[in-house]
Design a protein around this nucleic acid. Sequence first.
DNA 1: GCTTAAAAGCGTAGGTCATACGCATAGGTG
DNA 2: CACCTATGCGTATGACCTACGCTTTTAAGC
Lengths: 246, 246
Amino acid sequence: MTEEIDLPAEVTLLWGLRETARRGRKPSLTVADITRAAVEVADAEGLGAVSMAKVAERLGNATMALYRYVKSKNDLLLLMADAAIGPAPALPEGLEWREGLTVWVRRVLAVLRARPWVVQIPISGPPVGPNNLSWFDRALGALGGTGLSEEEKVGVVMGLLTYVQGEARLSLDLSTGYRENPEAFGRQYGLALARVVDPLRFPALSRVVTSGVFDGEVPYDDEVDGMFGLTLYLDGVAALIGRAEA
Amino acid sequence: MTEEIDLPAEVTLLWGLRETARRGRKPSLTVADITRAAVEVADAEGLGAVSMAKVAERLGNATMALYRYVKSKNDLLLLMADAAIGPAPALPEGLEWREGLTVWVRRVLAVLRARPWVVQIPISGPPVGPNNLSWFDRALGALGGTGLSEEEKVGVVMGLLTYVQGEARLSLDLSTGYRENPEAFGRQYGLALARVVDPLRFPALSRVVTSGVFDGEVPYDDEVDGMFGLTLYLDGVAALIGRAEA
DNA sequence: GCTTAAAAGCGTAGGTCATACGCATAGGTG
DNA sequence: CACCTATGCGTATGACCTACGCTTTTAAGC
């Protein structure tokens, strides 16, 4: 059994599979400690405030000590992205696929709303962290009763994840901007568009603006039921499942 | 006519509506010059290489000169995000909504593929730049023949934009990771998952892994037709339009 | 044409950041 | 007990954004 060959560094990092040192001084920290401290900083002051110095200070260590456990700050961000979402709870048994995915989306959004900085972490590869995989697994499980092939399930879930992350990113960025500059949003947005949108240059958009869609508050939906695009996507999944069953 | 009241700073910046100075030295630069130089840097060396110093150097000016034209680097990023995508070309006449949106998505992806750094710029508010609005307008126009309300059209287009941006971001990040570390992807990903995914802990995912879906290359679709999630979303839109017509 | 003030240019410098390097130190291993 | 290895940590470097203040240029008003 040659099991220890060639696992990408990212994987061994996220799964805590570093070979344990048998010689030398004992480590005073663990990767999990560092990750937890970094998450605390991000929770308190945002992702921008996460610096190696600040994380180390919170742990009572010197800045450079962290580099004994993490190759770079990017490594730390990867660890944070996995740790912050936690393991996915099991879905209730016996749900139809659509109910199951809706519950799943609601939970994803709840997690991302609690830690808005997660969606700001740049992604550099396919998901490999244990928590990420557990969320992936739950969504796949929700499609268990359908007649979809494994490949189709993967496509459905990846698309859903993409959509939800994009939606969360947009809506969280908007709410951040709103918090920083409240009077510029809401009615102001519609007014600004009305001032700037030339009916000749932007005919379709102009019709929308004059119809008053933008005059109210910025929609800013955190409710799943209000997520118009999600409904459309799930309708598309329903059509696919219908075709698969026919 | 009180036209000059209360436009958000962001809007006047993006539309070049600053009041022209009547006193003092003449500016040797324009906001457009600065934006163009910054875009050139990003094209050549990536978004991370865009610094005020480097942009100023390319323009033959001192670093601090730029702050006479932009309030902060964030302002410059906003300008870049709008300038980089260019104005949206008009869609061919007489297309069905689905054909029109598909062409539109293909063009969006072509633009984002040409300038991958655009999707890395953090968003801080709803779109107000002229080029962003023109893209928005074209997509709305593609839905002209349908019976959807203006509000529904906005929802459909915003969802589509969210999805396409998310998909582009993911796929571009993956291809970046692939370029930096080719041997870790492709078959390696499937192998790593197989090593790490416990059937008891991740039952649904385990089924997918053993079915061999991940054993090939990472899909990495740039083709619209290969974008599984997009098809699902447009199917959902079709269902909505069908309901609206009935 | 002369004065004046507003605005642009630019150098300096402060603060923060990631991280490379070298040396001291502690704790298994032989 | 001696050695070797891996960690702890201070220093240092280079890059970054941007606040500040002085100088220079230009147009407006008399």
